[in-house]
């Protein structure tokens, strides 16, 4: 690892920082509100590291949900991570010991960064993946700690800061759009998800979207491969 890698990783992690800290605070406040001390929030953010699931998890804990419904909920909410793994097979597959942590810590936001990156010269790719994951993970833990520890004691009107996560995905979409020779996958992904959102509603659209996107990408493989040439990673 060198200084360039450390600096690059930190710069890339910056857009995630504000979002994770604020969303982490939100999570910590909710959990503390249910009577859990701050250690619980820190524990959950350390071992689960999945925003939406942790927010839902607060309710599961508060209502004393059964093990089986917790498992089903976790699998349903996080099924999209299967796709992250599939698209990182090449980049993370041969990384040595660092891959275990990088795979463990592959959140939506970290994924959006690492799947878009053209890592510049002088940056150690493996250490970058590792460090970026660790920095993002620590922002999430720090936010959860602050939220659970300080809780509602200070009023800070942060409504809307979470939009920075949406903005991050939009930026990555623009970057990928400019680099891709074919826009079929992006159009399919956005279009199918939008239609599924309208048809199935906000609580149930994610899994049908994933299945239909995968099917559509496979069906259109000849067209996409042809449009794409050999490039694209």
């Amino acid at each position: 690892m060198n200084k360039t890698t450390l600096k690059y990783s930190f710069m890339r992690s910056l857009p995630v920082m504000a979002g994770y800290i604020v969303l982490g605070i939100g999570f910590g406040v909710l959990l503390a509100d249910k009577g859990y001390s701050f250690w619980w929030a820190v524990l959950m953010s350390t071992v689960v590291l999945a925003g939406t699931l942790q927010y839902v998890g607060v309710e599961l804990l508060a209502t004393g949900a059964s093990l089986i419904s917790t498992i089903l909920m976790s699998l349903m909410i996080n099924a999209r991570h299967l796709f992250y793994g599939i698209s990182m097979l090449k980049k993370y597959g041969k990384m040595g010991w660092k891959r275990f942590y990088a795979i463990f810590a592959l959140t939506d936001e970290t994924y959006s960064l690492v799947c878009t990156d053209d890592v510049p010269d002088g940056v150690d790719r493996e250490w970058y993946y590792f460090l970026l994951s660790m920095m993002n993970h620590s922002y999430w833990i720090i936010g959860s700690f602050i939220g659970a520890f300080i809780g509602n004691t200070f009023e800070f009107n942060s409504a809307g800061v979470d939009f920075s996560m949406t903005a991050l995905f939009v930026v990555m979409l623009v970057e990928q759009w400019e680099k891709s020779r074919t826009h079929i996958p992006a159009l399919l992904g956005g279009g199918i998800t939008l239609i599924c959102l309208i048809v199935f509603g906000a609580d149930y659209f994610l899994i049908p979207s994933m299945l239909i996107i995968a099917a559509a990408l496979l069906l259109l493989k000849p067209a996409i491969t042809k449009a794409e040439g050999v490039d694209e990673a």
Partner: peptide, 13 residues
């Protein structure tokens, strides 16, 4: 192949 084309689709998702 899916690994190559999924990022574009998933970020849009």
């Amino acid at each position: 192949y899916l690994g190559d084309v999924l990022p574009n689709a998933i970020i849009a998702m």
